[in-house]
Design a binder for these strands. Structure first.
Lengths: 206, 206
DNA sequence: GTCTATAGCTAGATAGAC
DNA sequence: GTCTATCTAGCTATAGAC
């Protein structure tokens, strides 16, 4: 029992420390020694938990993929939200809920995806398929629900989903920088909300 | 003379090879040996042209900064363009002109900025100040000219400049991936133009 | 300005004691 | 499961011959 707990604890520590270090220095900028030192063990001990360095990175990406898929609200959830919330508040809630679902490890992993997207195949896939593709399709499905309920006017939903999504993606880079540099992230959040207001103004029925 | 020419040529080769390799593997993923091998010289010879590895990276960022500042059309240029072009065509021309100004080395440097923005201070500055800040202010100044000429309706120009710019920035990431993977970049260009059409539709005088 | 040779260091990974 | 010790390979950078 104690064995299992301490095993889990050390592996978890390696996991979180790696996320933090990779997000600051990039995968190739962090050595197994640095990770071991920060965890408080010898580098050779890492190999009892992970096969090699690459497997640590892969486990980070897998965690991101699993967690973020679970978070996204279902179509039923959206329907319910629209019963008592405005279009604008639903979109704002999606951003707030997404932000709240991110612990500091997930924040770090997001940055690792940004950094490694041109070098690592898994990171590239997460960027293009998850952060761009799936997100856009999700927003398009939300727009379809709103259209069915006739609370937004007729628009090119694929286009508006892209407009909504790409700007938020770029702003999430700016957000990562603010958090990174220990600056106030409020101005970026404000920009996100201003963007949502702009889209909702466009969507308003005439 | 011949000395000068060959010197310039080797230095230029180091410059271009480094841009290519850094953009693929990241700064920390490329060794001086790899660069030397690809150039066709010994690694020690690099130090006759650059003080160290960091100076190669810095020179790449300086080149980006100098070139892109020179490219951006002046307010007078914009005024002239508007004499015989529509609002939409001016914006499309800005994207096309920007694209044409990029040789393959500048394409690579853009990717290096994306990769290194969270690790390298110069890259971070270029991302936040040049690609986000300056670009947005430039578009805002273009919108002001259009507004003065009364060819667009009254809007929050700071907001629209951000809407215009952030989506294009995110799409430029997708563009970099397409070029990177040897895929067809046309669908991304099409998305850029669709975005511009959307913004111009919004700007149309009533 | 390029070369050979090498210093001096750090990397990822493994063997075997406890 | 963690440790010490160590291997091999790779790294940046320099010295000095040509």
């Amino acid at each position: 029992m104690r064995n299992n707990e301490s095993k889990k604890c050390t592996k978890q520590k390696i996991f979180e420390v790696s996320a933090k270090l990779f997000s600051r220095e990039g995968y190739n900028g962090v050595s197994m020694r640095k990770i071991a030192k920060e965890v408080g063990i010898k580098e050779s001990s890492i190999y009892n938990h992970y096969k090699n360095k690459e497997e640590i990175l892969t486990s980070l990406f897998d965690y991101w993929n699993d967690t973020l898929t679970i978070y996204r609200p279902s179509e039923e959830d959206i329907e319910k939200m629209l019963d008592y919330m405005s279009v604008e508040d639903v979109f704002k809630q999606l951003v707030i809920g997404f932000g709240k679902s991110l612990n500091s490890t997930l924040d770090s992993i997001a940055k690792i995806i940004y950094i490694e997207q041109f070098r690592n195949e898994k990171a590239r896939k997460l960027m293009l398929e998850n952060l761009i593709g799936e997100s856009s399709r999700f927003i398009e499905s939300v727009l379809k629900i709103m259209s069915r309920k006739k609370i937004i006017r007729a628009v090119d939903m694929n286009l508006i989903a892209d407009e909504y999504n790409y700007t938020l993606l770029a702003l999430s880079f700016e957000y990562a920088h603010a958090v990174n540099d220990g600056e106030d992230a409020a101005p970026v959040i404000k920009k996100m909300f201003r963007h949502i207001s702009f889209i909702c103004e466009y969507l308003k029925p005439i």
